[in-house]
Every structure is written in C-alpha cells, then in structure tokens.
Amino acid sequence: MSIEKLTAYDFRNLAADTIELNDNINFIIGDNGSGKSSLLEAIFYLGHGKSFRTSQVENLVTHNKSKFIVSAKDDKGLQLGVAKDFATGLTEIKIAGEKHRQLSQLAINIAVQVITPESFKLFFGGPKQRRRFIDLGLFHVKHSFSDCWKEFSRILKQRNACLRNRSDVDTLDYWSQVFCEASVRVAKLRDEYIKELSLELQPWLELMLPSLAEGISISYSQGWNSKKTLSDVLLQNREREKKAGFSLYGAQKFDVKFLTGNVVIDNQLSRGQQKLFLLALTFAQAKLIEKVKRVKPILLIDDVGAELDLNSRTLLNNAINKLDCQVIITAIDKIAVEPLVPTDNNYKMFHVKHGQISAIGK
C-alpha cells in the first residue's frame, strides 16, 4: 500500500493538518526539532501502535493536550486511524469505518519499516533489537508466525511460573514438553525466514556494497545448542533454571549476527558502510513482504544525510529505484537529498518548520 493522505491532530509538535503524499518518493526537509521526524513517527505509530523514538506513549501527545489522532487514507481508498485519549485511557482504532480493539489489527493493513540514526542498535543494542527486526518481517512474510508466537508466549509464561513457584516435577515436565514443541515450531519458521532473507539480501548488497557483498552473511542462533535437543538442554540445566526462576533456553533466546567473513560487521565496516548494510537489509525485508502480497511496505528513512557521503547516497538512489514501495525520507536540507531526486519528477518535497508542513515546488 501507499499513503495518499495523512492526518495528524495534536501529535508531538505537528500542526493539525492533512498532507497528500506521493506514492513513490517523498522528501521532508527541515531543521532539527522542526517536526520532520515526528511525521515519520506518526506513520510508524499507525503501523505498529508504538513509537520508534520513545516507550512512553504519553510523550506523543502535544503539550497541554490530552488526546492525539493519526489517520491515513491509502491508494485504494482504505481509511484507517487511531486515537489515544489520555484523559480516559481509551484507545480507539478504526479500519474502513469499523472499530477494532487491538492495535495489531493495523499491522495487517499497513507495514511500516524505519531506518534512523539509532538503527545501529541492531549491532550495538544487544539481541533485543535484532529479535524485533527479524520478528517484524516474520509477522508479514510467514502468516502462521503470529499464532505460533502467541501460543509460544502463553506456554513460556506458564513454564516460567512453574520454575518461579517451584512446581512439582510432573507439572514442570508437562510444561517443558509443550514448551519444547512450541520452541521448535517457532525456530523452524525463523530459520526458513532467515534463509529467505539472506538470499534476498545479496542483490541489495551488490547494489550498495558491491566490494563487500560476497563475504557478508547472516548467522542464526535458535536459542539453544543446535547439536542437542531442547529437551536435553532443559533437563541438563533444570537446577540453573529453577534458581533463575525463568527459562534460560528456548525460542525466546534466539539471536542473529551479521558477519563479514567470520567477524561481526560492526568490527569491520565504517559507519557509512554499516548504514548502507542496514538499508540493504531493510530493503531485502521490504521485498520479501511485497512478494507475499499481504501488504506492500512503506519505508521511512530518517536523516538520510547522517553517515552517508555523496557517493553512498548515489548508491542508495540506485537501490531505491529498484524498490516498488512508497519511501519517505527526511533531511536537514535539500542538498542532502539531491542525489535521490528522481529524474522523472515522480516525487513530492515538503518543508517543515515549527510543526507546519508545506509543499515545496519542483
């Protein structure tokens, strides 16, 4: 999908307004603090029900206001939106005029991916960030993953309660058995997805990191020793887990590493090369989402000038031309996006100042 119209009321510092976006590429230009990242954040909230900048949702509402609204109309006329009222604590979700209770319903209709200067947490932020990235793609590409993960999470909670409460052996054995079965199902889906992602990644690496593409790979760790069954691992570590009070092994502990040769990428690549790798990885995931035809993704790139020199932005432009999805890019000035402007003029450019968004003529 692509967003045709975006409306925001009392979201961050954005002025209450509706903007009409291009279905191909949109450039958002403005100084730091002007509101350009808030625009991306509003779109991201529509797709995820949360921010990519803060875990405190109350920070998203305009100062001295108690409610924000974000809504969008896509290229097929579908209207979807979410309103968060902090006075009542209520969240209202509407899709095609119908009310929904779960924010996850939005993600069925809109897939949003974002790359920010903080995206380097994929390398430095521990496994949590990498797990989140992989599972986002899984949600859209492997349609059975959502139900598998919900069931796994329920079982994990029960098993952790058994360990924490020192349940009897039979009860712990039962929950350990179903936990192993659920872990294997989730791990299998992840393994399949990471193999697909690795294949899709190569052509994007050849576009953006041609001299390094051949040596880059993704290494997947399922959450327990792959040479042993999970049941054996749990049995051998039962006393450790009882002492910890939670499950130390299983699908919840998976991780991925991005390697060049046998060395993690962040120890070998410059910051600019790392950002190009992140872009290639995100583009690969976007194409996988597109291939399953569940929903075409929207790609958000915040502060494109950070870490990327002129040559890198030219390489990025070549890659964007291969994408078949809506792209929304922010930058401090027009100079930063000049290498990305399409020659066929199929784009829109906006300027943001003090939350006010205005179109810039071509």
Rank of each mutant, 00 (worst) to 15 (best):
F11G: 05
N13Y: 02
A15D: 14
E20P: 06
E20G: 14
E20F: 08
N24S: 15
N26H: 07
D31T: 04
D31A: 11
S34A: 09
S34N: 07
L39F: 13
F52D: 09
R53E: 12
T54D: 13
S55H: 04
S55Q: 10
L60P: 00
V61E: 06
V61G: 08
V61N: 12
T62W: 06
K65W: 02
F68D: 15
K73H: 05
K76P: 14
Q79I: 14
A83M: 07
K84R: 11
K84S: 08
F86P: 13
T88F: 01
G89H: 12
L90A: 08
K94A: 08
K94H: 05
A96H: 08
E98D: 08
K99G: 13
H100Q: 02
R101N: 06
S104G: 02
I108W: 00
N109E: 02
N109K: 13
A111C: 09
A111N: 04
V112S: 02
V112F: 03
Q113V: 03
Q113N: 10
I115W: 03
I115P: 00
I115A: 01
F120E: 09
F123T: 09
F124D: 14
I134A: 11
D135W: 01
D135E: 05
L136C: 12
H140G: 01
K142N: 02
F145G: 03
C148P: 03
K150H: 07
K157T: 09
Q158T: 15
R159E: 11
N160T: 03
N160H: 10
N160W: 08
R164P: 13
R166C: 04
D168Q: 08
T171G: 01
D173E: 12
D173A: 12
Q177F: 02
E181S: 12
S183W: 00
R185Q: 14
D191A: 14
D191N: 06
Y193D: 09
I194M: 14
I194D: 09
L197I: 02
P203M: 13
L205G: 04
L205Y: 07
E206W: 09
L207A: 14
M208R: 08
L209Y: 10
L209F: 07
S211T: 10
A213W: 00
Y220C: 03
V233G: 02
L235V: 13
L235R: 07
Q236E: 03
R238I: 11
E239G: 05
E239I: 03
R240D: 07
K243R: 06
G245R: 07
L248H: 08
L248I: 08
Y249T: 00
K253F: 04
L259W: 01
T260Q: 15
V263T: 12
L269P: 09
R271T: 15
G272A: 07
Q273E: 15
Q273D: 15
Q273M: 10
Q274F: 04
K275W: 08
L281R: 02
T282S: 06
F283C: 13
K287F: 15
K287C: 14
E290N: 05
V292R: 05
K296C: 13
I298Q: 06
L299Q: 04
G305R: 04
S312Y: 12
K322C: 12
D324R: 10
D324I: 12
I328W: 02
I329Q: 04
P339N: 03
L340V: 01
T343N: 13
D344R: 10
D344L: 00
N345A: 13
K348L: 04
V352R: 05
V352A: 10
Q356M: 12
S358Y: 02
I360T: 06
